[in-house]
Amino acid sequence: MRTYELMFVVDPRVSDEDVVTMTQEYRNMIASGGSTITAEENWGRRKLAYTIDKLNEGKYVLFYVSSETGKTALPEVEHRMRQNDKILRYLTVRTDEDLKRAARRQPAAGTTPPPPGESTSPAAAEIGPDEEEV
């Protein structure tokens, strides 16, 4: 089984509702491409570390995707994101190999990151609030 993380940054001028409808398209593409979204995180508005297209903020959305067969629609999704100028940045990362390696190195200890169990946490708890004023 392969797992992926797909994170992308949306133009902050897009309203929250529009972000949901916009990302629904990607969600559908992933679901119909033979993979499932195991969890989703919406970090909301977050300050960018540097300006992108003269913008200082972005809305962060994160998908955890898993695929039994190794077949996903992620290349197509990336292609669509590239064309969408409301998407400032996107990044797909394959995580199963690294997580497996980490788990093997320490079978008992609990410091490995939790697998994406809980869905749509309101904000990234660890990284959220204290980053705001830079």
Binding site: D98, R105, Q106
Partner: peptide, 11 residues
């Protein structure tokens, strides 16, 4: 004993 270094862990 951090074995998976997450790019999301800004801190």
């Amino acid at each position: 004993k951090i074995d998976y270094i997450d790019y999301k862990d800004v801190k």
